[in-house]
Nucleic acid binder design. Structure first.
Lengths: 340, 340
DNA sequence: TTGAAAGCGATACCAC
DNA sequence: GTGGTATCGCTTTCAA
């Protein structure tokens, strides 16, 4: 293990050739004899040579690196998307830089600056709601996946679900099972307050379409200060303590749904019988629950694929076929709406 | 928003000074008049100037970037550690590169090569078990947190828990509550087979110390092919189906514990009454469960802190006070050992 | 206080 | 097939 980092120049000297030739061999470009190639490769291996990425990207003004910006990697839904996007990018020869903003706009702005400085080739926003214009001299392509907001860049694409329809379908599922009083529970991080208004629109619309009277007391919205699980349980408790009742719950998020289920179980209310519950995102939380929670599957593979496709198209300066992509979703029914 | 990326040279020309002066102003180094500073800063801001990181790190041969290598960011315990380490490093002026190896040694080797090429200043391994010697010319400091394996680098530090003692304490907790037949359930990723042997040692030792006969039929070990939750449930089912019985379960991991709890509940066995269960890591899984699962808290903040301290010490070429750091753990009792 | 110029490591054009 | 050399953007030394 050499102490000092070995450069292309060292290889050239040891091999008795020029740096140009070494570069050619190492990158399999240009032409060189088989003998030269063997010598160069052998010496490079012996010396533990690794190309200096800084020099390379300075010269090529490209890093083959994409920044993934997400508010919360500990959120199962986001992290799934992040992992899928990362995998697809890797397959396309790009490295990903995963940035966790924790919903902090200032931190995000700082990140963006840093990333532009680090010469990333593009941005992918995954989840959340931010509006941090990129106030730096760059013209990088940006893709937003399940992300409300714009970067102000000229080359942007958006991949999303039809959120109002999602809220509609969740509500409709409960109504179809006979629910007459459907509550809505939503816990949003303070930084994203109002994050889930689109789903709420669908909820309201569905109630209207099915001639169910909207009851404002059944719209339970809370900030995301403690874990959303506890927050949700608390909202349900408060609602019931005040004497309101419901026979169905649309929970905007599986974690929220799990909190609701726990609170109901705790009160001896039959989840899946007395009260039906549906969550959102088909995350681990909906599956570990007993009873298992009905939810909305959002087709993350497709979202990741479409997003990466759009990004690659922009990176290669191709025509963008569709700047706003809508991916379908699907209702997954489990015990909390089907009963035992 | 300028189209072309603006360099220090552009700023210098516009400000009517030299690049050296611009560099000084921007880095608050050397000396310059207040007037020069104001002009330079104003122009830099107007032009949306961002330093080219590649050029900077090429010149300084330091990137102020640390690579964090972890097998599985979707594991709550690892991701907590990753986030804490990242936070501490950020506070110290370092950026983190988060690398998810998925337990794949080849992928890890590839990563390491890439990271050395990218001129990271150091490595932190978080979790898992790998032994990928760094076969590249570098002499970077490496810290291992809850990670079995060595990089072969000359400057290394290790932060860990006392794993045998952990297994011992888990088992002892159950025995202290009166358990006589204690099962051990372990689900390890195939890549890390035998990952949890250390805890098993403690389990065996505890049984020996408390005069409980070790029953090999109660040691349930499975590979981690499907989600460990299901795997664990299946192991429990198989064991019971074969007619073996137990009154306590040491589950090596909270996800495993949750699977065990679900399987037992499903059979109508009173968890916390008929059978006591203890998990490990104090992750989200132990808290979302009903009944809540007793577990081992591993003091991740302290692990992160000690690890980062060691890394910074090595980066600054200080004396390393302690190459092998052992962090304490703590038994957290909840409903699965305390009953309702 | 300011500036000219060398050099970090790799690439690529253009001679040979 | 091979090599000399300008170049990417920035920092830093040394002189002015």
């Amino acid at each position: 293990m050499a102490k000092r980092t070995v450069s292309i120049y060292d290889i050239a000297k040891l091999a008795g050739v020029s740096t140009a030739t070494v570069s050619n061999v190492l990158n399999e470009k240009g032409s060189y004899s088989a003998k030269t190639r063997d010598v160069v490769l052998k010496i490079a291996r012996e010396q533990g040579y690794v190309a200096n990425f800084a020099a390379k990207s300075l010269r090529e003004s490209s890093t083959k690196t994409i920044a993934l910006i997400t508010p919360d990697v500990s959120n199962d839904f986001f992290s799934t998307l992040v992992l899928k996007v990362e995998g697809l990018l890797r397959a396309a020869g790009y490295t990903s830089y995963i940035c966790n903003t924790a919903g902090d706009q200032e931190r995000e702005a700082h990140y963006v600056r840093d990333l532009v400085s680090k010469q990333v080739d593009g941005f992918v926003y995954i989840g959340g709601r931010t509006h941090v214009p990129h106030e730096v001299a760059s013209d990088l392509p940006v893709v937003h996946i399940d992300h409300r907001g714009s970067s102000g860049m000229s080359r942007e694409a958006f991949v999303d679900n039809d959120l109002p329809r999602m809220g509609y379908d969740m509500t409709k599922t409960l109504v179809d099972h006979g629910c007459k009083r459907v509550a809505l529970v939503s816990v949003s991080a303070s930084a994203y307050h109002g994050d889930e208004q689109d789903q709420k629109t669908g909820y309201v619309q569905c109630l209207y379409d099915t001639d169910i009277q909207l009851d404002k007391n059944l719209i339970l919205e809370g900030p995301h200060e403690q874990p959303s699980l506890l927050e949700a349980a608390q909202l349900v408790d408060e609602c019931l303590d005040m004497g309101y009742s419901f026979d169905g719950v649309v929970a905007l998020g599986d974690r929220v749904a799990l909190g609701v289920v726990n609170a109901l179980k705790h009160r001896g209310i039959g989840v899946g019988q007395d009260v039906l519950v549906i969550g959102m995102d088909d995350s681990i939380y909906s599956r570990v629950s007993t009873p298992a929670i009905s939810t909305i599957r959002r087709h993350t593979s497709q979202m990741a694929q479409r997003g990466v496709d759009a990004l690659l198209a922009m990176l290669h300066d191709k025509e963008l076929p569709e700047p706003r992509i809508v991916v379908s979703h699907e209702v997954i029914e489990r015990a909390t709406t089907l009963g035992a």
